[in-house]
Every structure is written in C-alpha cells, then in structure tokens.
Design a protein around this nucleic acid. Structure first.
Lengths: 195, 195
DNA sequence: TCATATAGACAGACTTGTCTGTCCTAAAAT
DNA sequence: ATTTTAGGACAGACAAGTCTGTCTATATGA
C-alpha cells in the first residue's frame, strides 16, 4: 500500500510535469489530482526535486521498455534499427506526446542543478547503450568503430525527430529522420558489396 | 534615447532569459541588471510575455545574421551548406551557448500560449527558408523536390546538433551531424555521376 | 492502541504588474 | 535670453497572487 501510494504520486506527477511543465506544476495540483494529503507526498519525497528525479526515471524506464518491445516485434536486421525511430510515429499520434522530458526539464531548472542534470545524462547513456546493443545485434559484420558511429547517428536522429516533431507539431521530422536512416543503412550495404 | 533604453532592456532580458531560463528570471532581476526602473520597463513592454517575444526575435535575427555571414565566408558549393552546421562549433565553444532558445522557451510556457508558439514557428520557418535558399544556390542541379528534402535534412541535423551538444555538454553531436551531412552530400555526387 | 492517512492553516519567500511622486533634460514659447 | 511645458526615467511602495515546505489537529484502519 505504501508502494501503491508512492507509485500513484509518481504517476500523477509524471503526467502533470510532462504535460504542463515542471515549474508550472505545483505540489498542490499534484496532491489534488492524486487525492492525497500534502504530508503524505512529503513523507515519500523530501522535496519537489526528488519527485522530479523519480519522474525522469519513471519516464525513461517506461520508454526504454516500450521501445525495446517495439523493436523486438520487428524482424531482425535493418527493421529493428529503424524501429527506434518509427516507434515515435504512434507515440506522436497518441496525443500523449509532448517532446523530450529531459530537454524540457533541463530548460526549467537552474543552471547549477547538478543532481537533475546528472540523472538525465545517465539515463540518456542507458538509451545510448540500448541503441548500441541493437546495432551490435543487427550489424555484427561492422567493425566496432562503425557500429559506434551508426549508434550515435541513430541517437541524434532520434533526438531531432522527437524535438522537431514537437516544435513543428508535425510528423515530418520523424518521417525525414526515418528516411535519412534508411539511406544510411543502404549506404552501408553498398559499401559492403563494393568491398 | 528611447530606442537605446528599449534596446538595453531587450539585451539584458535576452542574456538572462537565455542563461537562466524565462520563468526563473524575474522582472526585478532584469531591471536591476539593466539599471532601470520598473515603470520604465513597463512603459516599453506591456508584459513579460511581450518582452519574451522581443527576446525571441532579437536572438533569431542575430543568429540568422551571423550564420549567413559565416556561410558567405565559405567557398561556394558544399562548404556553404556544411557552414550551417560548423557555425555551431565556435558558438558552442564560446561559453555563451545554452541550447535552442525556442525549444527551451516552449518548454517553459503554458501549453495554450499560442502567441509565443506562433512566433517561434514563424522564426523557425525563416530559418528554414534561409537553408532552402542556400541549397538552391549551391545545388541548383537538383530538382526542387530534392532541394527541399536536402534542406529539411540539414535543418533537422542542425537542430539535433544544437539540442544534443547542449544536453551532452559535448561537441560530439555537432561533429557527428557534420559528418553525416558530408556523407549525404557525397551520396548526391555519386548519384549524379552514376546517372 | 498505534501508525498513518487526512484537511488545511501557515510561514516566508517569491512573482508580475500598478501606481505615486520626484527629477532631469530638451524643446518650445514668450 | 528666459521661462514654460512635456516626456521619459527614476525609486520604491504596494496589491494580489503564486510557490514550497512545515505543522497541527482530526479521522481512519489494522
């Protein structure tokens, strides 16, 4: 039950933080929506900042889980790599999409908040590791250096697809990123047959 | 003199908004740094929101001017297109860099603030137009459709370079974006000679 | 009975924006 | 040449509201 309450707080805060922003969401709004008392919230989290860290973790864990699942449902090979990007299409269309919570949160906190920045960087690293693993699995003919380069490229394409589809309120940046990635994968094939 | 004061206000606000964030920068901080009275500020801008619009315009105009200059100093051809991206290297290293003010501002305002969102989209469109013009000038052998596609790709690479170098606090996303663009341009050359 | 939930008052520090009244400078009118 | 007039900037108090986080006092459930 204590865990239930904690999970409920995180879930509620996560919804509001992501939808309306971290600074624009007050503690009072969170407890009202969760139907709990303020003292209850502060018994689980010693500050709003701590709740923010939990929010970032919850979002990132959830994303990683879903995107892994999405990719595993694709056939082996390029499809799985492209899966990282086309995962964004239904996400964007779901209406729950509101850009990258990491970038949005960084935009809202003071410059010297190391704690939150560290958490975000560490979570992005986990995401990067996931992509690298996916590349290794599906492009094991490539050298390590080329695998790493491809992973980085998929990562930046993913990030720009997220940020720009959000800003433009349009699907085109996602589609263009996918298209670009397909080009890259085709180039790798050509380079291979050329050798 | 009136124009000087107005310019001073915008410059001061621009510095603080970009460095510390829009919501975290108070009117009192702006007037203290600018050395002006509150009534003076409010005689030039009827609200903080209006000052925000002026800040976005000032930043975007400045950027466009500088990036145009940077590209014009490059030799005609691919170099000018790559210029859009390698412009970011000295910017990042200058210490004045703090990510994309548009995305950061969007992250801070309420969801339903159409005014600021409209301004940002309109300024991004101007930036896109600039890239399209640059592509037309330097890739006039391409069809219009291919020019438009290339422009979009440069745009998303630019945006991801900005966002990710900021988030990662590292130059690698910029360098990787440049590298990716060079690949794309090489592909276009190969496709041309192949035909 | 005892832990834990509740509602909500409260402190204290912020926020934006308004308003009053003073001062200075420069142009216009005498 | 001297006086008047007007515009802008000034300092700073103030209203009205926001925020986080603490605390008290009551209720509920094991």
């Amino acid at each position: 039950m204590k865990n239930d309450t904690r999970a409920l707080i995180i879930e509620t805060a996560s919804e509001l933080f992501y939808k309306n922003g971290y600074n624009l969401t007050g503690i009072n709004e969170i407890i009202a929506k969760a139907g709990i008392a303020k003292a209850t919230l502060y018994s689980h989290f010693k500050s709003k900042e701590e709740l923010c860290l939990a929010y970032l973790d919850a979002r990132d864990n959830d994303l990683l889980k879903n995107i892994k699942e999405h990719c595993q449902n694709k056939s082996k090979g390029d499809k799985q790599l492209i899966g990282v990007l086309d995962f964004l299409i239904p996400f964007f269309q779901s209406g729950a999409f509101n850009g990258c919570w990491c970038i949005r949160t960084v935009a809202e906190i003071p410059r010297d908040n190391k704690l939150i920045k560290k958490k975000i960087k560490s979570n992005k690293k986990l995401f990067m590791n996931f992509i690298e693993g996916l590349v290794r699995e599906n492009k094991n003919e490539l050298t390590k250096a080329k695998q790493s380069k491809l992973a980085k490229r998929i990562y930046i394409l993913y990030e720009s697809a997220v940020s720009e589809s959000h800003l433009q309120e349009d699907l085109w940046p996602i589609e263009e990123s996918i298209d670009l990635l397909k080009n890259l994968l085709k180039d790798l094939k050509q380079a291979k047959t050329a050798n």
